[in-house]
Design a protein around this nucleic acid. Structure first.
Length: 395
DNA sequence: CTACATTTAAACATTT
DNA sequence: TAAATGTTTAAATGTA
């Protein structure tokens, strides 16, 4: 099958600097001819390529969303500064881009959720949570310079709660089978914070996980065990007896304590988290967060399992891809981006789905291309996309 | 290399 | 009694 003929004898969007630019590939190709050969051999029309293509679609989609948010932000900033709203170039309906993307039925509600909650005074260094330094909006809380996780009380309003916290990546994680870049402890806390009365039963926490992340709609036994483990392990989680059982709450002080400890000396996370209060928390920041938070994990996260299951597939590559893009977008320092490859990125949903297989039952699992992509588990040649590869993808 | 943080697994103990 | 919940211990793994 000949993909793209060499219309212009020598240049191809998938070829550059002697390297194949197919997502996750990076094979070296001496010359264009070799590249074409490579392209036809390695990226022929098969399940894998197709899946990768879908994934790429999603990447584009996400970026478009991001872009529209940035535009909106810019607009607001300029307006605020009394500048000419420099021609409202883009169509005023930013979030629609999504729908434009052919993508199958997934991401049904994308837009409604994360509306760049108005430019709540982009100027002043609003720091509602000045007191608690790093309590950034957890879930990619990018924007949200205002309202800290704290005083939140069911922000139902728009689709689902926590929307404001999860903001930009909410839909993403909800539908993409991607492991969220946060530790269990962080997630658990977020779950509890998002509840109306700051307390949840174990089961409610479970529900939050499955409801919020597509990733946690698999291997329940594993992550649920992890959740319980975390609840018991961390002092920040306090069990409170209740009339009808017990609920879990968060001891914010403890949580912060442990957090700050972790980031004593050099604390990238702190630095990265603060921005949100500096005012420039936003889509970009969102992306950044992904990167940072991820980084954050990078530092600590690990854990047996994943790594090995890891080697697998393009999803990982894709995520890398996105992460790289996002990180780049937002990161200013050169510093450590080379490391933005939290291993969980490689953590493919266990190929050997233990139990609770395609339990897609859950509410509405708009299916995700990603998921689909993974689907070709035994794309045998997993190793071809090993971590090494992945990391490189970033640079 | 050591100290730590985090994830997984698992064995048990308690409750429901 | 079985299923849920909670506690603990330990291994694996990555980072400071």
């Amino acid at each position: 099958i000949k993909v793209h003929h060499e219309e212009n004898g020598g240049s191809h969007p998938l070829y550059g600097h002697g390297v194949c630019k197919w997502p996750g590939c990076e094979s070296i190709c001496e010359d264009f001819g070799q590249f074409l050969k490579h392209l036809n051999n390695e990226h022929a029309l098969d399940d894998r390529s197709t899946a990768q293509c879908r994934v790429q679609m999603q990447v584009v989609q996400q970026l478009e969303i991001q872009l529209s948010k940035e535009r909106e932000r810019l607009q607001a900033m300029m307006t605020h500064l009394h500048m000419q709203p420099s021609e409202p170039k883009s169509s005023p309906k930013p979030l629609n881009l999504v729908s434009s993307v052919t993508m199958s039925k997934n991401l049904p509600s994308t837009s409604p959720t994360n509306l760049p909650q108005t430019p709540t005074t982009p100027t002043a260094p609003i720091t509602p949570m000045a007191a608690m330094p790093q309590v950034p909006s957890v879930l990619g809380g990018a924007n949200v310079p205002s309202m800290g996780a704290m005083r939140r009380r069911h922000s139902d309003k728009y689709s689902m709660p926590l929307s404001s916290e999860i903001a930009p990546n909410y839909e993403f994680y909800k539908n993409a089978d991607v492991r969220p870049p946060f530790t269990y402890a962080t997630l658990i806390r977020q779950a509890i914070m998002d509840s109306s009365d700051m307390q949840l039963t174990l089961n409610e926490i479970y529900s939050w996980f499955t409801r919020t992340f597509a990733y946690f709609r698999r291997n329940a036994a594993t992550w649920k065990n992890a959740v319980r483990h975390n609840l018991s392990l961390h002092k920040c989680f306090v069990r409170v007896e209740n009339v009808k059982g017990a609920v879990w709450t968060v001891d914010e002080v403890e949580y912060q304590k442990r957090r700050s400890q972790k980031i004593t000396g050099y604390d990238p996370s702190l630095v990265k988290n603060l921005p949100s209060s500096l005012g420039y928390g936003s889509p970009l920041n969102a992306s950044l967060q992904v990167g940072t938070q991820a980084d954050d994990h990078l530092n600590s996260r690990s854990g047996g399992g994943p790594t090995r299951l890891a080697k697998n597939n393009m999803l990982a590559c894709w995520i890398m891809h996105v992460a790289a893009l996002l990180v780049f977008t937002g990161k200013k320092e050169g510093k450590k981006e080379g490391k933005c490859v939290p291993m969980w990125l490689c953590h493919r949903p266990p190929v050997h789905v233990k139990e609770e297989p395609p339990n897609m039952d859950d509410d509405d699992c708009p299916m995700s291309l990603v998921t689909t992509a993974n689907h070709s588990p035994e794309l045998d040649d997993d190793r071809e996309l090993e971590e090494g590869n992945l990391s490189e993808d970033l640079e």
